[in-house]
Design a binder for these strands. Sequence first.
DNA 1: TGCCACTGTCGAAGCGCTTCGATACAGCCA
DNA 2: TGGCTGTATCGAAGCGCTTCGACAGTGGCA
Lengths: 336, 336
Amino acid sequence: MATIADVARHAGVAPSTVSYALSGKRPISESARRRIDDSIRTLGYRPHAGARALASSKSNVVALMLPLRDDMHVPTLLQFATGVVTAARGHDHDVLLLTHDEGGDGISRVATGSMADALVVMDVEREDARIPVLRTLDRPCVLIGVAGDAGELTSVDLDFVAAGELAVDHLAELGHRHVGLVGQPPSVYSRRTGFADRFIEGFTAASQRHGARVAVRPCEFTYAGVATAVEALLAELPELTALVVHNEHAAPMLLETLSSMGRKVPDDISIVSMCTDDVAERMRVPLTSIAIPAAEIGSRAVDMVMNKLHGREAPGLTLLPPRLARRDSTAAPTGR
Amino acid sequence: MATIADVARHAGVAPSTVSYALSGKRPISESARRRIDDSIRTLGYRPHAGARALASSKSNVVALMLPLRDDMHVPTLLQFATGVVTAARGHDHDVLLLTHDEGGDGISRVATGSMADALVVMDVEREDARIPVLRTLDRPCVLIGVAGDAGELTSVDLDFVAAGELAVDHLAELGHRHVGLVGQPPSVYSRRTGFADRFIEGFTAASQRHGARVAVRPCEFTYAGVATAVEALLAELPELTALVVHNEHAAPMLLETLSSMGRKVPDDISIVSMCTDDVAERMRVPLTSIAIPAAEIGSRAVDMVMNKLHGREAPGLTLLPPRLARRDSTAAPTGR
DNA sequence: TGCCACTGTCGAAGCGCTTCGATACAGCCA
DNA sequence: TGGCTGTATCGAAGCGCTTCGACAGTGGCA
């Protein structure tokens, strides 16, 4: 394996010159640069990451802590990850993968051991044990999600409050006055993962503003769970004409359940779903939906953490605005 | 940040002694060990990963190359990843995440730059451009999947041929003689990803053995795609009484499609599905299924790559035997 | 008592890179 | 011609660790 000294010898310059040619931190003559480039290519030289990290105290790695829980929607999760990896590579960084269950220990191992220059932490909860750890660290980090006590820590997320409002606004505009919310599984709420609560918050606020009557039910993603939730909502709101679904797994089951109950979508019941566009489009009835821009959130998180790494300021909390895509699952309620 | 020299000073020993205490490569007296441990704890010492990598030429990192394609079943993918990360941590290694689209370049960047000691590469295709690169590398690697020209490279995968056979064996045993296969999307076959072809191979071989008549159709995971596939299969095999589904996304759609055609499962049509157990159990009719033991494959891959890293031999190709879980979607065909 | 083997520890070299300060040289102006 | 500025390059130190060889001390055996 060639070293920088080999390259220097081959090109007839000092090792430091090669280093400067590589980093661009000092001017290099045209001729030297050419010889160095040639030598690098013919020797197949690649700098040793460890040596570089040692000398420069920069690892060019960002750590990504991913939850691997089965009550999360996995494809969305992977979109976050893709956004993070792609953006990181764009900043010439690699990504070290940590899982949620390593917790604060994993974070400090990677940070204190100088394996990573920066951290992106997903799926933060309202009261998250990792946040104190993050705060003691000297390394920049960005949270995906909104923690209650994030304080000065930088966070990015979809504006779930606005998403909840947007769903109701759309339905109210069409004339709906009785709207149910099919939520996430109970475990998600009891973990106090911020996004689920925030969605309900926006949903409720907008309903009040529009004078609509609403009901909310968590929902497991099994047929039985969906049926239970729908029955409970109908019992509470007999005149229900619209549903908002914040549960990617449950959406197809819901459609099937309603159809087996003889309720047509959108004629009898309108549906707005929180889900990615491709899921919405593949449904039996293509769903009007609000997507979580997961890849964008991931790449934004990396951009911000890079800003901090370079000493630039980053905002405390960034909430991306939701966008609603109209499809075939929403219509004005049929007069009765 | 404390260094090994700080620890040594604090404990009243030489830095090398601390190093040996940490690595266990030379005997250390009980008293020295205790003082060193104390010093490490009070100083919050953590070895610098880069320095360690430089001195020992070991990074304690394995690179994982993950495909992020949307025609793959993402939850399964993440199970592989989970298996890999968990096993790697068990071997005191971290995981560097690479995406498929970095290709051979990504592999050689990470390997030549000494960022990773070993590689796990997923989703290998019959003729994979990364394989020649892998072969020139001095680092151990393990493939997940079966490549045509893997040669002496180590590979792990589910035995998809056996899985195809197992599905047919089960149906034949029940008395089915006309069986259709609902396959992966066409793009998967045209990429020549081994697993899909191998499944068909086993399916076909077992059918011949049992004297069953069969038909095979690729299938997009849209309702239209599923309907098309089912119609084509029925046209080719009017007496069809059973379906094998090798397509996790399509399974629920298939169930719905059959029910809307008035065909009952399992009374009119039996179904065997390749999918994870939790997906199978959540279906309207719980599916008899063969699961891909993704997490186990992932952790096996890591175990093998670690063996190679320590100079132990690893087998060329490991195929895990499939297991079929009987649920409610298969029964003997009703006599006509 | 002398020798040997073993255990526990130390010091120093070296891993491959970055970076600081020094230096050589060219070109310019006075 | 002397002195100055600026550009391009070099040499050496040092980043924090591992590892090799050396060596002091201890105990056992002849």
